[in-house]
């Protein structure tokens, strides 16, 4: 049963820049969860991955989500695992936060370990302006949006 064997993919030399653009609130539709799963799967391919949260997408990172009484899986805590998957760049658009009365303190803490700095824990979330996102977006090979 060869499909039961976990496979390591050798993708050296074909690193591309992938941006996952999140614009939907987390629990009202399936988009945010589907995107998160796509991101976790894509992490197996050792690409240059960044995530952008803008518009209602910033609500995906809101801390303190408790889904018990709506009987849904609480995937808010899964964002904290992104650092383990070597995803180190979560860009959150400042204008979208401000329009919703939110600041970075309202967001889940996501950290990664920096290999080049003695594995020091560093914050993965960076609040950036719309203009900075525009620049980042143009640098990408692939942008996946939901």
């Amino acid at each position: 049963m060869s499909d039961d064997i976990e496979t390591e993919f050798e993708t050296e030399g074909v690193e591309k820049k992938f941006m996952f653009l999140n614009r939907k609130a987390p629990y009202g539709t399936i988009y945010a969860l589907e995107m998160l799963e796509t991101v976790l799967i894509s992490a197996a391919f050792d690409q240059d991955v960044s995530l952008v949260f803008m518009d209602d997408g910033v609500y995906q990172l809101k801390k303190g989500c408790d889904t018990k009484s709506v009987n849904m899986k609480n995937f808010s805590s899964t964002y904290k695992a992104l650092g383990d998957y070597d995803i180190q760049k979560l860009y959150v658009e400042r204008e979208s936060l401000e329009a919703r009365g939110l600041t970075v303190d309202d967001l889940t803490e996501v950290v990664y370990e920096d290999e080049d700095d003695d594995w020091a824990e560093k914050p993965a979330i960076r609040v950036v302006s719309r203009d900075e996102i525009a620049v980042l977006m143009e640098e990408q090979d692939v942008v996946i949006s939901a």
Partner: peptide
């Protein structure tokens, strides 16, 4: 319990 996902193999090995 903490992350609501089962980790991929290389994440598990590292952890």
């Amino acid at each position: 319990d903490e992350y609501q996902i089962a980790p991929a193999v290389r994440v598990l090995v590292k952890a």
